[in-house]
Amino acid sequence: MEYQERPEINFRAGYGRVFGDENVVRSTLCQHCVKAILGLWLEVIADDSRHRVAVGQPAGAYQAHQISLPDDGKR
Rank of each mutant, 00 (worst) to 15 (best):
I67W: 07
D21H: 09
P70I: 04
Q57N: 00
R26Q: 11
K35V: 02
G73H: 07
G60W: 03
E2I: 07
L29D: 01
A64W: 06
V44C: 07
K74G: 00
I45H: 13
A59S: 07
W41S: 09
D47K: 11
I9V: 14
R26N: 11
Y15T: 11
Y62W: 15
V53R: 07
G14R: 11
G73I: 02
E5T: 14
D47Y: 09
V25K: 03
E2P: 15
Y3W: 15
F19K: 02
G60F: 02
G73Y: 04
H32Y: 05
A64T: 04
Q4K: 14
F11H: 10
R12N: 06
G56M: 03
V24N: 02
M1L: 12
A61R: 13
K35M: 08
E5C: 03
R52T: 10
N10W: 12
D21S: 12
R17Y: 12
A59Y: 01
A36Y: 01
A36C: 05
S68Y: 15
Q57R: 07
I37K: 09
R75Q: 10
A13Q: 05
C30H: 04
W41N: 14
S68M: 14
R52S: 08
V44G: 02
E8A: 11
D47H: 08
G39N: 13
F11V: 11
V25D: 04
M1G: 11
A46I: 08
E5P: 08
